[in-house]
């Protein structure tokens, strides 16, 4: 838990600094400001949640059950695997559309992404097959 608090504090500081540099001092463009604010809010919410877990026993128990519940874990894994399937399909369709429109630069980037993801998938598949 302490490691998590430390990492969220780092994210909070990085987010805050990005936001200040962009929105207050104008040193960075608005993209970094937006990203900084998002990181700041994310880390802040996580830290509030950790504090609640530490101080509220009832909430801590609820949180522990919800995060260790096997059905929740199953649903989360299933959603991630389906999201991967759909994103691969969307990328493949986009690749075909870009090819028909002769957009070579986009085709190159998307192809690398597509093949890279497939390589990661197969590497993980073979590693997990050995472990399981």
């Amino acid at each position: 838990m302490e490691k998590r608090v430390f990492s969220y504090v780092i994210i909070l500081i990085v987010g805050g600094v990005l936001f200040l540099l962009s929105e207050i001092f104008g040193k960075l463009d608005s993209f970094w400001g937006g990203l900084g604010l998002a990181l700041f809010i994310f880390a802040m919410l996580r830290l509030i949640q950790i504090r609640r877990i530490k101080t509220n026993e009832e909430y801590a128990e609820k949180w522990s059950i919800a995060s260790n519940d096997e059905r929740n874990i199953y649903i989360s894994k299933e959603a991630r695997s389906k999201a991967f399937n759909f994103s691969m399909m969307i990328q493949a369709i986009t690749l075909i559309i870009f090819t028909s429109l002769n957009m070579t630069e986009y085709i190159k980037i998307l192809s690398y992404l597509f093949v890279g993801q497939l390589c990661i998938y197969f590497a993980l598949y073979f590693v997990l097959r050995k472990i399981a």
């Binding site: 059950i65 919800a66 260790n68 519940d69 096997e70 059905r71 929740n72 199953y74």
Partner: peptide, 18 residues
């Protein structure tokens, strides 16, 4: 140590437990 929803799903036959 599971959620109430998990028990409901098992009872309904929507979820097969480990």
């Amino acid at each position: 140590s599971v959620s109430r929803q998990t028990i409901i799903s098992i009872e309904k036959g929507n979820y097969t437990p480990s």
